[in-house]
Design a protein around this nucleic acid. Structure first.
Lengths: 373, 373
DNA sequence: GCGCGTTGTTGAAACGATTCATTAACCCGG
DNA sequence: CCGGGTTAATGAATCGTTTCAACAACGCGC
């Protein structure tokens, strides 16, 4: 113990009085080595504290047993849930996961991708920062398997695993309309990003279907998609004197920030304003007012993506696949019906769980939950 | 574009009509190469889409430009904040971070450590699953720099960056006592884990100081430390008919789960029960009842640890350091004074930061790092 | 006793980048 | 025109592992 220099396979070989080839065989194909020899080698390995040098293995074999995962925001539980799914699938297949955080920055994203390429990773899963998929394509062109996560690949030259954002937006807004809301605001990031645009489009579509003017869904843009952004957005809304009666947030972090500031300002949710979030992270249910949210199957998304990338990197004849899941609406108190109004603003609606039902929003007829009894 | 085989330095050399050594020089010491040659080489690199093979570099240089970070729970925002600090510092120093999740499992922890050792990482930061630091020591003995995060190294043979858990527990319970609570329960994981034990000990100390019986702080053990565990703990408390009037949770996730179930059951927080969490994650402020919490400087912790591990791996004569920060209590509504009762929940105890001091316990006089940016 | 298949073991040739001792080319003062 | 110094470029050795053709030893049937 305590040796500084890591022992190499050669020293193990010498200690066990065998050739390097035999040591390698003990490591990789133990069955072809005579038991006595094997034992001797294993003893030497133990004795010297030998650790396989992964760099050398990779160099020889050409590809690493690692897959990269680049997410938009590690601070968002949606992405850590996703990461858990990825890790589970990867571990089963004997791969390690390298989790990288692009934080919504194109620069950081490309730095990470470059790094992953240099590591000769088996494949890369990424939730792209922007719609411009050139960096993903470039990576794929270099021979790295790429699977987009949370962003459908429009063309067939890439794999992707996503959730239908348009349906998500539609379900959310349909629900707001059904609770009697008419002046709606959507809080989201740049409309140039697919997710925000699609969810917005879904919302407009819901309005159209219901016979309203799609322009009734105002678009309020925020720079980032975190709790702080939601807080700022709420301040902005409050500052202009008139509030919408329904707000659809592009994710739960924004919704939680918004909720917090609204409540603090004495605005009642859901009586004055209904709030719908997106992702249904664990914290949504535990919020000041439990949050209605559009749920995405984060872990499943991760698992599926990892399975795809592993298959693509391993198999020979690979067909690119675009997988699409459908989100479901989870109704909680933040969108209680207007009829519920009249309750004290303060604490006490607690415990009166409006609707514990969890409901699946389908594509065509995202049904409305029964009005609270 | 579209080439399958990654170009090697040799092919670049051929294309640019120079030797491999020159290409390597262009990559690593551009100044020693004549401008014309350099341009030619760069053009070839661009043309062939050459990507440095990190495995080969590592193999040659002996160590990777990567540091490993093994955390107890990626789903806990405390750890993602910490990870952000690590990443910031690592990136500045030109290192990549490999984020691993042990999920509180010793097995997973050692698998990750093994993997990191095989990758010849520059160093490892870890928040150990158990108090038994043998795996950390073993890794260190193999020549890998190890820094413990969130767990002080009792002996001097390891670096560590931690926050004083005893003080944290003491501050939390002192505060509960100050708001008039007398029947206290602490919800935590196994008392065999240092963090839980220390925070508990701190709490008992607070009782003793205040002239009470330390046994007044009941210890309720939960198996995991997440939202679900808090929910179960709340159900357990509710089931026995009599509630404590103050609960100290070992982290905010547990506190949030507890809070949610208590409120749902019609229990008033803080009137019936005061709740204190730990870590002060972003969601604590946005909870159903904004959560009083013991704040740890997560990002700073990460930065400091990363700086240490980078220094240790780089420098020659290295002194192991044990850095200790002091937590601060952030008071919010979940522990409103009993006197405050009757007030609407939307109360203003905000911003009344008890101890904004940030204190560094050094070994021999470790200076206070400047508050990051 | 010879050939044959089986079973274990060997050692050298990759993999791709870095390093370093050599060599080549050139400038300049004497 | 020569010697010494500077600047550029070279190519072989090296890192630790895997793979694979070659070989040794052995048992066995004829």
């Amino acid at each position: 113990m305590g040796q500084q220099a890591a022992a190499s396979i050669r020293q193990v070989a010498r200690a066990a009085r065998v050739s390097v080839g035999t040591v390698s065989n003990v490591l990789n194909r133990p069955s072809v080595v005579a038991p006595a020899t094997r034992r001797r080698v294993l003893a030497a390995i133990d004795e010297l504290g030998f650790v396989r040098n992964e760099s050398a293995r990779q160099l020889r074999s050409g590809t690493a047993r690692t897959i990269g995962l680049v997410v938009l925001d590690v601070g968002n539980p949606f992405f850590t849930d996703l990461a858990k799914g990825v890790e589970a699938a990867a571990t089963e297949a004997g791969h390690a996961v390298m989790l990288c955080n692009s934080d919504g920055s194109r620069d950081r994203e490309s730095r990470h991708l470059e790094l992953l390429a240099q590591q000769q990773v088996h494949g890369v899963l990424m939730s792209p920062v922007e719609d411009d998929l050139s960096s993903a394509r470039e990576l794929a062109a270099r021979g790295v398997s790429v699977v987009l996560v949370g962003h459908p690949a429009e063309s067939e030259d890439l794999c992707s695993v996503a959730v239908d954002d348009r349906v998500g937006g539609e379900v959310a807004v349909t629900h707001l309309l059904a609770t009697g809301r008419r002046h709606l605001t959507m809080i989201a990031g740049s409309p140039a990003t697919r997710q925000c645009a699609e969810r917005h489009a879904g919302g407009r579509q819901a309005l159209r279907r219901a016979g309203h003017d799609p322009a009734d869904l105002e678009f309020l843009e925020v720079a980032t998609l975190d709790v702080a952004a939601g807080q700022r957005a709420a301040e902005q809304l409050l500052a202009r004197g008139e509030l919408p009666d329904g707000v659809f947030c592009v994710n739960d972090l924004v919704a939680l920030g918004l909720l917090q500031v609204l409540l603090r300002a004495g605005v009642s949710v859901p009586d004055d304003v209904a709030v719908v979030g997106y992702d249904d992270i664990d914290f949504a249910a535990a919020a000041a007012v439990p949050l209605t949210s559009v749920r995405q199957p984060a872990t499943l998304l991760g698992r599926t993506a990892a399975d795809l990338v592993i298959a693509e990197g391993t198999g020979s004849g690979h067909q690119h696949q675009q997988v699409m899941f459908t989100p479901e609406l989870v109704v909680r108190e933040s969108t209680g019906h207007r009829e519920d109004r009249g309750r004290a603003t303060g604490g006490p609606a607690w415990g009166a769980l409006l609707r514990p039902v969890r409901e699946l929003g389908g594509r065509v007829g995202a049904q409305e939950p029964e009005p609270a009894g």
